[in-house]
Amino acid sequence: MNIKSWFRPFEKISRRHAALISGFWLVLLISFWFIGTSGAKKLFPPPALVWQGFKDLYNEGLVVHIFSSLWLCLQATTISIVFSLFFAYLSPIPAFKPVVKMLSRMRYLPLTGITFYLAMIVRDARTMQIWVLVVFMSLYFITSLMSVFKDIPQQELDHARSLQCSRWEVLWEVVIKGRLDYVIEVLRQNLAITWMMLVTVESILVAAGGLGVLIKNSDKFMNHGRIVALQIVILLVGLGIDWFLDFSRRTLFRYSKL
């Protein structure tokens, strides 16, 4: 084992060595957590407190809250991806391009203003939660999808045209069918932001539960063990979704090498 090579820029190392390096950092982090929180003064809650927080949360129905958050996320994501794809697929048509561009620019609008108007339209708080997320996510999805479509090389469009495709067929074959795998990738990249937004959005309706409600309550009572436990849970669920989406893309689209 040549450890020196681990410190050489652009060095290719074996998978076993890569796992060893990751393992080393993980052990270092956990050790730092144990040692750093063992003294009288603590900047961070010790592992025992976090574990206790986790047990309390589990007993209070953590799993139900996780599913509540996932269900909210799924509903909002489904609506926003349909909405975003509809507009993004219109972007190659000159007559609609300004509308799609304007929607993309609206991501700079503060959410507070939007929630005020949404509150006047929707009937209940759960719908409000969904639509706040839909509005927020869609603007980012549209921006990312437009960027994906803009990056389609001219050669791909010309190739379809040279095979007697009408302009609508070019849109269908090259942009819609030819970039389906990118939709999952865009979803994957933007879902990280959405997942973080959950905390804010779920605080709109406490009765509906969810990870956001749990973390808000824990924060109110300064229960740091629970807060860190929840943060770890949110991180792990987020990473799980990320892995699932990446796995789905690679499984459903064999040609996808992003």
Partner: peptide, 17 residues
């Protein structure tokens, strides 16, 4: 007109899907 003549570019572009 478009499609009357086949066109093969130097990158040999194909439908990726």
């Amino acid at each position: 007109g478009e499609g009357d003549v086949g066109f093969v570019d130097q990158k040999y572009t194909l439908f990726r899907h």
